[in-house]
């Protein structure tokens, strides 16, 4: 297909553009995941597979359950039912911190920069399996000093790549909104994830920075990581996604390559249609 540009995305060219379509090499598979808030069915996903090594855009109108689905899949919220697996290992009921350690790392819609930690400390925090993070060895620097230096080097490389190196000694709270988004993304990479889940990475970022953020997202894929990201801005989604999943009222109503989604009647009704109505109402 013409719109599939990245080599890793070629694998998706034979996948039918329909909800719940099986993928050739799924990294994440969800079955019957549901979550109710009182009378509201926030999430009700029958079957969803996320292909490895590509960028999957998750879109849907406000209240479609995108963030709730993120929370459920990453262990930040407990579902009422369903099961899901990451790399063929079940993640049902696995605590959030263990999900991250398995290589599935998320960011948050409202950026969670750790304000009163320096930028470099934010980064170093992301590294896993740190010997000095255990209370006993923490008292004896020779046990973790060497590892700390390695981590710091890796953190500096990432900061350089995300153009934050000159801010390394600043408190994260002193950064601008866009820089915090960059920091959060860079910090997530310190975990060395296989799958990065970005919850509205462009929200509240000035247009000049959007391009650079998009560049970072595509470079994650180019390095072999899988990316799922939630986004409101249709243009952004269509630009960089290899595959798009559309949620509405908690259900997957469509999925497919961006071009197919643009033409999908159900999507236009649920998403674009409602957006047009919103604008008219204003």
């Amino acid at each position: 297909m013409a719109e599939v540009r990245h080599p890793a995305a070629q694998a998706l060219s034979d996948v039918p553009a329909e909800p719940g379509a099986p993928k050739p090499d799924p990294i994440l598979v969800a079955d019957g995941v549901s979550r109710r808030f009182g009378g509201l069915q926030a999430v009700d996903v029958d079957h969803l597979e996320i292909q490895r090594g590509v960028i999957t855009g998750l879109i849907g109108p406000n209240g479609a359950g995108k963030t709730t689905l993120f929370n459920l899949l990453t262990g930040f919220d407990q579902p009422d039912g369903g099961s899901w697996s990451f790399n063929d290992r079940s993640l049902s009921g696995v605590a959030a911190h263990k999900v991250a350690r398995r290589g599935m790392v998320r960011t948050f819609q409202l950026t969670k920069a750790l304000s009163r930690l320096t930028v470099i400390d934010n980064m170093k925090l992301g590294a896993t399996k740190q010997r000095g993070e255990r209370i006993g060895p923490a008292l004896i620097k020779v046990l973790w000093g060497a590892q700390e230096r390695e981590i710091e080097e890796r953190a500096d490389e990432l900061l350089d790549r995300f153009k934050l190196l000159d801010k390394r000694a600043d408190y994260a709270g002193e950064l601008s909104g866009g820089q915090r988004k960059l920091l959060e993304m860079a910090r997530a990479l310190m975990v060395e994830p296989e799958l990065v889940m970005l919850d509205e990475p462009m929200a509240g970022v000035n247009p000049a920075l959007v391009q650079s953020l998009l560049g970072h997202v595509t470079s994650l894929r180019d390095e072999g990581m899988s990316v799922i990201f939630v986004e409101h801005d249709m243009d952004v989604v269509m630009n960089i996604s290899d595959w798009v999943v559309v949620l509405a009222e908690g259900r997957v109503i469509a999925e497919g390559p961006p071009a197919a989604i643009m033409k999908n009647r159900a999507v236009i009704d649920a998403y674009l249609g409602s957006e047009h109505d919103d604008e008219e109402a204003r």
Binding site: T107, L117, L139, V191
Partner: peptide, 30 residues
């Protein structure tokens, strides 16, 4: 003892929990 601990990676996790425990959790900290 507290000064030693707080300047270690353990202390870094502790301070990150003060700032935002969900962020700490999302980075694999128990």
């Amino acid at each position: 003892a507290v000064a030693l601990l707080m300047s270690s990676p353990w202390g870094r996790v502790i301070r990150s929990i003060r700032e935002d425990e969900e962020a700490a959790r999302s980075l694999g900290k128990n």
